[in-house]
């Protein structure tokens, strides 16, 4: 029995369609990463968005469905209560503001420490430069968790810094540093330092030295040259580095959990507790959606800075 012509036509149409949308060898090469990212990156965000509009329920999984088909009636429940709840309870607003503040202050101090380091590396002779760059990258390859952990031993009441301070006679009583916001700042600056140094280095190393000499020849003092020539020219690196630190720092969980106190309110921690302790998946999703929206602006700034950087290199 021959297949019905309609089916054959349909099959032919499908194949033509497949070819038209590019399912050739080239298309397949494009499709693999594209499909993977659609399934495991794009769709998850849509699921989070969907869940943020559903209602928490004592069920498995613990939320009610968005759409229901009962007796031929399709009912769609869009529950905006999770977002209203976030707006209502000052805890969430405070956590967003506090996270942004902690991330911004840490980013500023990271920049302050990273700039001279990047500058020195960029100006170092060739053979030394490779070594110094490696020394910057090396901690990044060792465990992030263990590097945060190292600071517990440094900052705690009878830790290394307090022992040193008491031995030097600077203080009699050990200072309380662990479980404070101060410890969180240190933790963020410390772990994200390489992310700031590398983009700064990349722009500083390309900086044409003739400009600096020209500026000096024209009588500018080094500080003047730095402010009017070096800093403006390294601005793409500054922006990229700041965004690379600021964006993940806003959502940081491990650092406030290990180094911060119980009153260190960061949104990553709130989301974690909402999910693991309260098992309120819809509210956790709403927290994530708002965080994404807040981070959208810095992410766009980062993409523009990186695009400018790529455009600048021949």
């Amino acid at each position: 029995m021959t297949p019905p012509p309609l089916l054959a036509q349909g099959l032919q149409g499908f194949l033509n369609g497949a070819r038209r949308i590019g399912l050739t060898g080239r298309g397949l090469v494009i499709a693999i990463p594209l499909v993977w990212l659609i399934v495991f990156f794009l769709i998850p965000f849509l699921v989070v968005g969907k869940l943020s509009l559903s209602e928490a329920a004592i069920a498995l999984p613990p939320y009610s469905p968005l759409m229901e088909w009962i007796d031929g009636v399709l009912s769609i429940h869009l529950n905006f209560n999770n977002f209203l709840f976030l707006a209502d309870d000052s805890l969430y607003l405070n956590a967003y503001v506090e996270s942004a503040k902690i991330a911004a202050v840490s980013t500023f101090f990271t920049l302050l420490i990273a700039y001279p380091m990047a500058y020195m590396i960029a100006r170092a002779p060739d053979h030394r430069r490779h070594l110094l760059l490696m020394l910057v990258v090396l901690p990044f390859w060792t465990s992030f968790l263990l590097r945060v952990y190292a600071w517990i031993g440094f900052l705690k009441g009878n830790g290394v810094i307090n022992t040193l301070l008491i031995w030097l006679g600077i203080t009699q009583e050990p200072l309380r540093m662990l479980q404070t916001d101060f410890a969180v700042y240190i933790g963020i600056v410390y772990t994200y330092l390489p992310f700031m140094i590398l983009p700064l280095y990349a722009t500083l190393v390309k900086l044409d030295k003739d400009y600096l000499e020209a500026s000096a020849d024209l009588g500018a003092r080094p500080a003047m040259t730095f402010l009017t020539v070096t800093l403006p020219l390294s601005l793409p690196g500054v922006i990229a580095g700041c965004m690379l630190v600021f964006i993940p720092a806003v959502g940081e969980y491990v650092i406030p959990a290990l180094l911060g106190g119980p009153d260190t309110l960061m949104i990553g921690r709130v989301l974690w507790n909402e999910f693991f302790a309260n098992r309120d998946w819809p509210v956790a999703s709403a927290v994530a959606i708002v965080m994404l929206v807040v981070l959208l602006v810095p992410i766009m700034v980062l993409r523009r800075a990186q695009a400018a950087e790529e455009g600048a290199t021949p």
Binding site: V39, F40, F41, I43, P44, F45, V47, V48, L51, M243, L244, I247, P248, V250, G251, E252, Y253, G268, L271, W272, F275, W281, A284, S285, A288, M291, L292, L295, I299, L302
Partner: peptide
């Protein structure tokens, strides 16, 4: 490139929900 800067909590939550 997005996972390079996306906070871990968001990636974790979204993949779990998926």
């Amino acid at each position: 490139a997005a996972p390079l800067v996306m906070p871990d909590v968001i990636i974790g939550l979204s993949l779990l929900l998926l």
